[in-house]
Design a protein around this nucleic acid. Sequence first.
DNA 1: GAAGAGTACGAAAACGATTTCGTAATTAAA
DNA 2: TTTAATTACGAAATCGTTTTCGTACTCTTC
Lengths: 340, 340
Amino acid sequence: MENMNIKKLAKELNLSVSTISKALHDSYEIKAETKEKVLALAKQLNYQPNPFASSLRRNSSKTIAVVIPEIAHNFFSLVINGIESIAEELKYHVLIYITHEIPEKEEQIIQHLLNGRVDGILISSSGTTNNNAHYHELVQKGIPFVFFDRANFDVDAPRVTTDDYQAGFQATEHLIKSHCKHYAFLSLSNQMSAINHRKDGFLAALKQYQIEPDYIHIIEAGTDETLSFQIIRDFLQPLPESLGIFSSVEKLAIQTYHICKEINIRIPKQLKIISFSNLPTAALLNPALSTLTQPAFSIGKEAALLLFQSIKNKGKIQHITSLPNIILKSTLFIRESTKM
Amino acid sequence: MENMNIKKLAKELNLSVSTISKALHDSYEIKAETKEKVLALAKQLNYQPNPFASSLRRNSSKTIAVVIPEIAHNFFSLVINGIESIAEELKYHVLIYITHEIPEKEEQIIQHLLNGRVDGILISSSGTTNNNAHYHELVQKGIPFVFFDRANFDVDAPRVTTDDYQAGFQATEHLIKSHCKHYAFLSLSNQMSAINHRKDGFLAALKQYQIEPDYIHIIEAGTDETLSFQIIRDFLQPLPESLGIFSSVEKLAIQTYHICKEINIRIPKQLKIISFSNLPTAALLNPALSTLTQPAFSIGKEAALLLFQSIKNKGKIQHITSLPNIILKSTLFIRESTKM
DNA sequence: GAAGAGTACGAAAACGATTTCGTAATTAAA
DNA sequence: TTTAATTACGAAATCGTTTTCGTACTCTTC
């Protein structure tokens, strides 16, 4: 009685394998009485269909993959929560892959997923904007995928992003109205779509308020922890006069806080800072951090919905419908870190 | 050329399907020259083996499941990072399931995983200590699994936990030496192993220092967000004199901070607090939070290693070797929130 | 009562890889 | 030279489902 399967059920009930299968799928070909018998025995013997046999035959796995740069990161774990809420409802399984911000790793993962292990993929890209061959292979293989937050705009795939440009503009405007002199943008890299849009908003605001280029600093801190610490520390010594920082990601803002604590820079007196962040403790920091908060859970949810829709429509004639491109709004929370 | 498979490779090279399969697996039966030809063509035509066919035949999926109560939680996402680091190395895939602290959900997930979709499971239990039928079914089915952090001690499975009792004792001793009068333990539920061990350490320390029962409070805040807020708020109004709080989980400490801010309780003057936590911003809070920090990444890593070892040994004779039970140490960080 | 429709099932062919068991051909040993 | 061993491959069964075709049988309908 090691493992129950359809064949054993069939033998037990003196029915054929196909009848059992059809009964379990509530086929119209099978009469109610037989269905009941089959269901009853299946439950009694604790029958569980073999997922691989089923996937092999049906060529679908009821599984999606989520490919993200990091997981120990409030934003991404909230997104996963959103994704899971939908996947769970539709009885899909969720595979997690972490790229650690390494584009080659991402390529390798995507390359692997070409084998049909998953029915669809949700990606927050770690890649440079240049290399998108692996995305095109997905398209070619007909594997649906959806970008969220960090998209590759050269690839023809649905996207769920936030209003990064507007939010960047808004945050910067807020800094300007707090009367800073120097303005700095903390970036991870100049190859990530979301971050670049934030930077564009930053620059546009500064332009509109006619801030001189001499007072504008773009700091590319990179993804390496110790290196970015060093880069930020170097930038803050000597401290530019009346500095306003707009951090494009939470991690860099936290590093900045640590550095300020270390070398005794007073926030917001000497340095004002606002950051994109989903920190549940932003309001409890010393001082409380002004944030631009993305609706992370909703991003995950919307991206998943888009993906499942895409999976469902697979094979059907692609109408000339425009590419789904959902843009959600971030929320500005003004706190002490940008006080005048 | 839709999908490449072994059969097409075979036809192309005028070889049999079995020869191709063996060549791809570097079998000794196939001569070097043939292997090279096969490998070359496979690479050229971008052949990727169908994972379901392979899993079906081999009865193994190269996939593990991680079942956790929450994901938007520093501890658990760090653990996942640790798990992923090992899984990635061994080329295993990682499925994530979230129970949202609902025991029935956990049972349902485990029940589903009985079908062989995964080769092994890592679990941080959401269950009450009573119900462990689903774990026994796993044992019976021969599906390896490992508990981490929150284990069920009635079930015969490897565990990776931390020195919760000692850490609880140590944290409480620290509070006592900071001269509190009242002592409170914030718990989620009295059904979780790790939390109960922390509580035992808490109580033992208070006993050793002969603190009167009247000054000892056990607060079960539960897993519901709004409810736990209310419970903690109620406890803090009116505020017990010279209160020292030991929070068993990060979330409750953060809620306490929020409440203190709201109703103007000064930390550490009126209330001292220490908490189990993996917050990267603990030192930046206002005031900086004293923490007991678990080696979350290592917990994930060790648990994964244990699981893979267990998967490898599957089927082999179980020696009388003692049950693997790894206990890692937490680290105490004393900060301002418990200052005298 | 003959034709057609509908009902309820079974046989067998997939899905794509792995693996067991043969077996020709070559080489080595006696 | 004969026998045994080794090498290098192929045929076919197998994993457990799903699905396509049949096909008996019953029930209408005129």
